[in-house]
């Protein structure tokens, strides 16, 4: 009960540092989700719709990459962005940009695989119709993605959840710098290492509450959308 009390107290106090940390968590994870989905949704749909060389191999690889440990992604991005790495001269290691890149890579396979799963059954139903109309490939992609949008958004949320919850990648490429790259999960890891277990748990509860809130909002947008579609 005291932990819940402390969590509530933290929220009510609206501590500027905490707001900054929560804001950065959301900014990094939402941007990463956006970037990953802009690439993964069309590609996932394409994998579901068309036959092309290496398609099966791509599917196996993308599904396996869903199990990619965040710390491995962090390490790879770290080696790429480090000053001695191939992208070192941009100097973006230990910045929020580096964290966004790492999380985008991390959740790309998830959004890709779940989009493919969402489009696959729909494509079976639509294929003959779309073939008969002789629609362009772009139009075909757009139609299928739009009609599978609720399932696609579920995949998106899965990706966002993973991004928001992971600590292994952001702590390596972000460096957990106070006021600059410190996010919810790295704060929780830090407070745990300081032995402030109650505070760590209180922060965990706040993180969970934010996830619930965002999911609720998107769910609400979704159900609003489907109602709108029916009445139209």
């Amino acid at each position: 009960m005291t932990i819940l009390g402390q969590a509530a107290e933290l929220v009510v106090s609206a501590d500027a540092e905490l707001i900054g940390i929560v804001g950065l968590s959301l900014r990094v994870s939402l941007t990463a989700t956006l970037i990953a989905s802009l690439l993964a949704i069309p590609l996932g749909a394409a994998l579901a719709i068309w036959q092309f060389p290496f398609r099966q191999i791509l599917i196996v690889i993308s599904t396996s990459l869903m199990a990619l440990p965040p710390v491995v992604v962090g390490l790879i991005i770290y080696l790429l962005l480090s000053r001695v790495g191939p992208l070192g001269h941009y100097g973006i290691l230990f910045t929020p940009t580096a964290m966004i890149i790492a999380q985008s890579v991390l959740i790309f396979p998830i959004v890709l695989a779940l989009t493919r799963e969402a489009i696959l059954p729909l494509n079976r139903d639509y294929k003959n119709l779309l073939d008969a109309w002789d629609v362009s490939p772009v139009q075909r992609l757009k139609t299928l993605i739009w009609d599978a949008r609720f399932a696609v958004v579920t995949g998106l949320l899965a990706g966002f959840g993973r991004a928001l919850a992971e600590v292994g990648a952001v702590i390596i490429v972000g460096g957990n710098i106070a006021g600059f790259t410190r996010v919810m999960t790295t704060t929780i890891a830090l407070e745990t290492s300081k032995g402030n277990l109650q505070l760590a748990l209180a922060l965990g509860i706040i993180l969970l509450s934010i996830a619930v809130l965002i999911n609720a909002v998107i769910h609400w947008i979704g159900s609003f959308g489907s109602k709108y579609q029916v009445t139209r």
Binding site: G23, L26, L30, L34, R149, I218, I221
Partner: peptide, 13 residues
């Protein structure tokens, strides 16, 4: 609309 929703969520930070 979902992309817009994301942008709206990202923007204020």
């Amino acid at each position: 609309r979902f992309i817009l929703a994301f942008l709206i969520l990202i923007a204020p930070v």
